[in-house]
Write a protein that binds this DNA or RNA. Structure first.
Length: 509
RNA sequence: GGCCCGUUCGUCUAGGGGUUAGGACGCCACUCUUUCAAGGUGGAGACACGGGUUCGAUUCCCGUACGGGCUACCA
């Protein structure tokens, strides 16, 4: 087959959501796997829905996910411009061509007239059965049409859908799909503002940009019949791309496709990056503490899987394995728990230093800038215990600042002021240690506990509580080694006072 | 309403005319660890329904039900 060229063609009407990202991802994986070209094309033909900043958002989101277009706005390429608004007159030319060849016609019906038709018949369709009752170049005399255009009367160009044709095509994920032409309406190709609709622009650009595979969401399946007709009308059937319609990503409850509102309603991210509205901010996966590679992995598996039992993959591994034939047909629900699991898996895959880079901004948010090796060591210690990048701070702040929060319930339950001499003695013992690393500390604690006839449970929980404020966390030895002797002794001493305070506060209240 | 697409554990899915229907998330238990995770082991848990075809259907066909998408001068 010829050189593979695919495109992701979002329209800049708002933030790219996770379903769009997945479509981009599948296109990207498919292109990379085949050594093909991945193109970004901005479909900004509806100026009423245009949102400034959306294009930039899309580009940044793709880039965050590691998806870099080979051609597109800002990147260039031999088939530009890659913004449809900049290709406007091209479409007019092609619409003209269709009129000349009899595959399209001018229509002068006003929006009000059409609305009236729909009011009396909700199922009204502007199609081959009614077009001869409408005001268009099929019913009006040629001179009249010319005059209306001359007078600057608004008009649209509509596709003249043939009667009695079977439109069949092979979809890479669904197999044979067919439509009867009677069921298709005479879609508007060129709007009265001179801009093309999706249908025209899409087909013209895919042809001009030599797109070989159209991989897009299932919501486009119903209009593919029109697209096939367009390729026929232009005489481009031999160049018609292969279609692959992806299953939709559904709301967690399965009722409909995932939408912007679901994020706010359920407290889950539905956008890759944060997006600011006029009135609210939508946090993205990035702001929730997700690694882009985890999001990519999660998304890749929503509607596809390699058929192996391995689930955790990098982007590179994914494109080696990807295959359209393994894309599933049914819609997939968005499962936030699974997303978090992927994130945890990818966090564990990274070593301390790699993690430190990702975690640093999260720590810096709290005004702390630890040095690299220390941060890396903390990350290494914490990485199997966190699921989100934000957890490094929420679960490990005590590595960077004094303990601010003590688990008071645990202290009340376990601490007895009579124990104080034991811990004080232990502090003295520790202060005599001359070597300070995890192994030495472990041995020392062992020896101490044994010598004094104590149980670990009489010492360790209090050490942990004094050092971290919580009973949870990495091994005490590692924690102590990292924190350093001075800090450990100090926190232990302070902890004793805090414990007494907390316990006596309960006693009096 | 019409047209199109779909339907394997709660969720994501593997599989495919004869299987103990496999894995992962989540859940439960045990284990490891004197913490919490991670890890390990085990458990509960699915072929929507009805007809065919067939020696045999979860798998193929047809219906039905249910779900979803589309039905704009939006993409």
């Amino acid at each position: 087959m010829a050189h593979i060229r695919v495109r992701f063609a979002p329209s800049p009407t708002g933030p790219l959501h996770i379903g769009g990202l997945r479509t981009a991802l599948y296109n990207y994986l498919f292109a990379r796997q085949a050594g093909g070209t991945f193109i970004l094309r901005i479909e900004d033909t509806d100026q009423s829905r245009y949102i400034s900043g959306a294009e930039q958002y899309i580009i940044e989101s793709l880039s965050w996910a590691g998806i870099e277009p080979d051609e597109g706005p800002g990147v260039g390429g031999d088939y530009g411009p890659y913004r449809q608004s900049e290709r406007k007159n091209l479409y007019q030319k092609y619409a003209e061509q269709l009129i000349v060849s009899g595959h399209a016609y001018y229509a002068f019906d006003t929006p009000e007239e059409l609305a009236a038709r729909r009011a009396q018949n909700p199922a009204f369709k502007y199609d081959s059965s009614v077009r001869l009752q409408m005001r268009n170049s099929l019913t009006l005399a040629a001179e009249e049409v010319a005059q209306l255009i001359e007078l600057g009367k608004p008009y649209v160009v509509r596709l003249k859908v043939p009667r009695n044709e079977l439109i069949a095509f092979r979809d890479r994920v669904r197999g044979e799909v067919q439509f009867h032409s009677e069921e298709l309406d005479d879609k508007v190709l060129l709007k009265s503002d001179g801009m093309p609709t999706y249908h025209l622009a899409n087909v013209v650009d895919d042809y001009l940009m030599k797109i070989t595979h159209v991989i897009r969401g299932e919501e486009w399946l119903p209009s593919t019949g029109h697209h096939v007709l367009l390729y026929r009308a232009f005489g481009w059937t031999p160049q018609m791309p292969e279609f692959a319609h992806l299953p939709l990503i559904l709301k967690p409850n399965g009722k409909g496709k995932l939408s912007k509102r679901d994020g706010q309603k359920l407290g889950i991210p539905v956008f890759p990056l944060a997006w600011k509205d006029a009135k609210e901010i939508f946090e993205g996966f990035r702001e929730f503490g997700f690694l882009p590679e985890a999001v990519v992995n999660f998304l890749a598996f929503l509607g596809w899987n390699p058929g192996t039992e391995q689930e955790v993959y990098t982007l590179e591994e994914l494109y080696q394995l990807f295959s359209l034939d393994k894309v599933s047909k049914g819609g997939a629900r968005f499962d936030f728990d699974k997303a978090k699991w992927f994130n945890q898996q990818h966090i564990m895959r990274l070593d301390g230093y790699a993690l430190a880079q990702r975690v640093r901004p999260w720590i810096a948010q709290h005004g702390v800038t630890p040095d690299e090796s220390y941060l890396a060591a903390v990350c290494e210690l914490l990485k199997s215990r966190v699921t989100l990048l934000s957890d490094f701070w929420t679960q490990g702040a005590y590595f960077f600042t004094p303990v601010t929060q003590y688990d008071e319930a645990a202290i009340r339950k376990r601490w007895k002021p009579e124990r104080r001499p034991i811990i004080e003695d232990f502090i003295r013992y520790l202060s005599q240690l001359t070597t300070w690393d995890a192994a030495t500390i472990e041995q020392a604690i062992h020896a101490y506990v044994q010598a004094k006839g104590l149980k670990f449970g009489e010492v360790l929980p209090f050490v942990r509580l004094a050092l971290a404020g919580t009973l949870k966390g990495p091994g005490v030895n590692e924690m102590m080694a990292l924190l350093g002797k001075e800090t450990v002794l100090q926190r232990l001493q302070e902890g004793l006072d805090r414990f007494d305070q907390i316990v006596s506060a309960t006693a009096t209240s």
